[in-house]
């Protein structure tokens, strides 16, 4: 097994495994309460991506796992961006681009501003997947067969 596929010691792996879920939920929470507390989709996405990066660093890049999921992560990122654009475009039905077109609930609750929550979740997806895709590109650097005419594989 190559050095980078082994991962770190048993202690680090266990701690990473136990904390990963907490970190992911915390990231999600930052995005969910982004309109009420400091936070939002961007910090939530960064938090979630850091959790995933930590998990990969601790457990190792077994049999090129990271390179294998790169494409899917990029697709997730695009999905987040398109979701954001789509929700923003829905605003036109209420009058203006990015205007809230969904009914508002009780203020100061997570469901008080569903439009903002959806936008924040789309940003979470975009930023989280984007950062992890950047990390995955660095991990995969030089491990994949270079494509014929240059391009992303060696970027």
């Amino acid at each position: 097994m190559r050095r980078d596929e082994e991962g770190l010691s048993e202690i680090v792996r266990t701690v990473a495994r136990e904390t990963l879920a907490v970190i992911l939920v915390y990231g999600l929470g930052l995005a969910f309460y982004g309109h009420l507390t400091p936070g939002g989709g961007f910090p939530g996405g960064v938090c979630a991506a850091c959790g995933l990066v930590m998990a990969v660093l601790a457990s190792g890049n077994r049999s090129g796992f990271v390179a294998a999921i790169r494409g899917r992560v990029a697709a997730l990122e695009a999905f987040g961006a398109l979701g954001y654009l789509g929700v923003a475009a829905l605003g036109w039905t209420a009058g203006q681009f990015m205007q809230s077109s969904l009914p508002r609930g009780t203020p100061f609750t997570p469901e008080g501003a569903p439009f903002l929550v959806i936008l924040n979740l789309a940003v979470l997806l975009k930023v989280g997947a984007g950062l992890f895709a950047g990390f995955a590109a660095l991990v995969a650097f030089g491990r994949e067969a270079p494509p014929a005419g240059g391009g992303e594989g060696r970027a």
Partner: peptide, 21 residues
């Protein structure tokens, strides 16, 4: 009202390219 289209259209096309990569 549709001024945001000038940025939304290329963004849409760009991320659709990424999704359909």
């Amino acid at each position: 009202r549709f001024l945001p289209l000038f940025t939304a259209v290329p963004l849409l096309a760009g991320f659709a390219c990424l999704l359909l990569k």
